[in-house]
Design a protein around this nucleic acid. Sequence first.
DNA 1: ATACGATTTTAACTTAAGTGAACGACAGGG
DNA 2: CCCTGTCGTTCACTTAAGTTAAAATCGTAT
Lengths: 193, 193
Amino acid sequence: MTLKEKIRILISSFEILNKEEVEIIVEKTIVGKFKKGTLLLKEGQIPTKCYMVVEGCVREYLIKDGEEKSTAFFMEGDTFTPHSQDSKPSKHYWECVEDCILTISDSSFEEKIRAALPRLDAVFQKIAIEKINKAKEEWSQFITSSPEERYLNLLETKPVLLNRIPQHQIASYLGMKPQSLSRIRKRLLSNKS
Amino acid sequence: MTLKEKIRILISSFEILNKEEVEIIVEKTIVGKFKKGTLLLKEGQIPTKCYMVVEGCVREYLIKDGEEKSTAFFMEGDTFTPHSQDSKPSKHYWECVEDCILTISDSSFEEKIRAALPRLDAVFQKIAIEKINKAKEEWSQFITSSPEERYLNLLETKPVLLNRIPQHQIASYLGMKPQSLSRIRKRLLSNKS
DNA sequence: ATACGATTTTAACTTAAGTGAACGACAGGG
DNA sequence: CCCTGTCGTTCACTTAAGTTAAAATCGTAT
């Protein structure tokens, strides 16, 4: 499958644009390729670009108590945008944990698209609402679970993460120490039999 | 201060509408008064209305393992909307934990406003982005903290909650048992001296 | 004022995660 | 090829939260 076909499928999956509208975006889309380990954004920088993952995986993290704490993982089809619309320096890092192909958008790109596709804001709004709902869902899940339950939930909802991401990054994403995750995995394995 | 003045101030605080636009909304706004204990939404119901708190406080919670788990508190100026745009039954309850005055919006109200104020979607978008950013911030905070740190953080960021909401609801909001919250408070008091 | 239920606190005990350290496996660079 | 640093696991020990139960406190309605 060509890159353009992949992007077409991912943008279509937003399920709000018709074929012609999808094509407008696909044709103008700017694509970037990044090596594993690339930092797209560092703490203190002012983020201006929005991305969508076409291939690969991007980890979002911050440094607290001298340790990296992973706060999100973005994979094929996921979009991620600056957190502060008013150009505040970021508290987060964005790191490619695999070789990545990403679409890149900034305000001048947005303007170009908007000229041909006035409905663009409706698209953003739909994505935003979905993100809010997903965040709400994850929050409810997280707050009502023990570390062990959170691991089991991840196993159910995003099993692919566990095969692509190092354990210690998963551990911090689940709000626990790597040793605890290792212990939980061991406990679950022995109880399963 | 009259009700209308309060609403004008709250809507102005979104900082995106000019005076005339604010007035369009204020004039058409529907207000509801609800007694403490009123359930605006029950689990399984399909939510259709959006609210903004003018006075009072609304608690969002869900039932898990037979217990109420608070997932959010909405206070003066906060807006809250259905989580699923596609009319799925709600997993959450909305309960007035105080006597409340709320503005009420539904799709027919939105249409009426939109006719006079085409920029309405931009307002929604700004609110949505702010909600996403706040959620992200809270997520980062929550995931990297122990229960005790979460309590201390709440004390810093939303001290007013602690004076208006019963401890056991705060406890579930912080992802712990009421006994643990009580213990933490005691520990902090004795260590402070 | 009293009685009741709900809320908060306290306590003893259990369980699970944090801590610090050590070990083996592994990968990449010299 | 070995050296080195990272990663995952394991262990012993500490710490804090969960559990269960009971007592104390508070508010409200009768």
